[in-house]
Amino acid sequence: MDLNLRGKSALVTGASKGIGAATAEVLAEEGCEVHLAARGAPALEDLARRLRVTYGVGAHVHPVDLRRSEDLARLAADVPDLDILVNNAGDIPGGSLDAVDGRAWRHGWDLKVFGYVDLTRLIYARMKTRGHGVIINNIGMAGERADFDYIAGSSGNAALMAFTRALGGRSLGDGIRVVGVNPGPVATERILTLLDASARSRSGAESAYTELTAAFPRGRAAAPREVADLIAFIASDRSAYTSGVVFTIDGGMSAA
């Protein structure tokens, strides 16, 4: 299916790996000019180079720390004519209430929760002036299926779900769509690390990791590309009447 995204301009945060890199690739494959933001410049440069060569699109690198307000402002200024923003960066720590102290909790929220909100505020204003745009928040299933052992992440994700619905419920009046995506477990470096820690805490055995993944639908975590394909569809005019909602892609886990 041609998503009619050719010639659009998209910014993907947390683009150096995982779902962010997969999303950048899908959008480039569809003909978007892509802007890649993350802290790791070498990984971004490698990805941008590959996207230019493989898909013949513009690919621009923005090494930024999205926890810093000055970096957010600089990033927004560097991409003034965006059609699509994909908020994706995040590293909220796992752990129960007694395991995640206030400093770690705030550090995680500064990137994923306040980073999403603050960058959206900056980009939304520019999109509103132009009269169109799409903002997609990659959030996470833990916001709807609260997890005692991921309490900071569950709380942050729930906040971003509310943010997405509140903003997206009225944003079409400004010509902008705001939509959320809630992936379940995805085969990224971060999720694999969290699963490994969870397995060790439950039994202390390496085999517990295999047992956890075996319990997933189809016996595996989702592939990053499976989430990225949904994000690309939502970003396109094929989904032009979609705003203020959050799509869950978890193989049915949150419905079980």
Rank of each mutant, 00 (worst) to 15 (best):
G18D: 07
T164P: 14
G204F: 05
V86Q: 07
D98V: 13
L212N: 10
L111G: 10
S16C: 08
Y116W: 03
T213H: 07
D147N: 14
V61T: 06
A159V: 08
G90R: 03
R202I: 02
R103A: 15
A146G: 12
E206H: 09
V12D: 09
G56S: 00
A166M: 08
R225C: 06
T248G: 14
A208K: 15
T248I: 02
K8Y: 05
D149H: 15
I135R: 09
L172V: 08
G156Q: 11
T213E: 04
L111V: 13
I135Y: 05
T120V: 06
G244N: 04
H132D: 13
R126G: 10
T54V: 06
G169Q: 04
G18H: 07
R170P: 00
G184E: 03
D196H: 08
G56L: 00
I151S: 14
P80Q: 03
G140D: 02
S243L: 00
E30W: 04
R190C: 01
I84A: 02
R170I: 10
S9I: 04
E70D: 11
A22R: 10
H62I: 01
P63C: 00
R39E: 05
V113H: 08
D174T: 03
E206M: 10
L194I: 14
S207Y: 04
V12E: 12
A215I: 00
T188S: 09
I191D: 15
V34T: 08
H60D: 08
R103N: 13
D118Y: 04
R39T: 02
L82N: 06
V53W: 12
A199D: 05
G20E: 06
Y241D: 07
T188G: 11
K17W: 05
V53H: 12
Y209K: 12
G153I: 11
N137H: 11
V12P: 14
P183W: 04
V246P: 14
G156M: 03
S171Q: 06
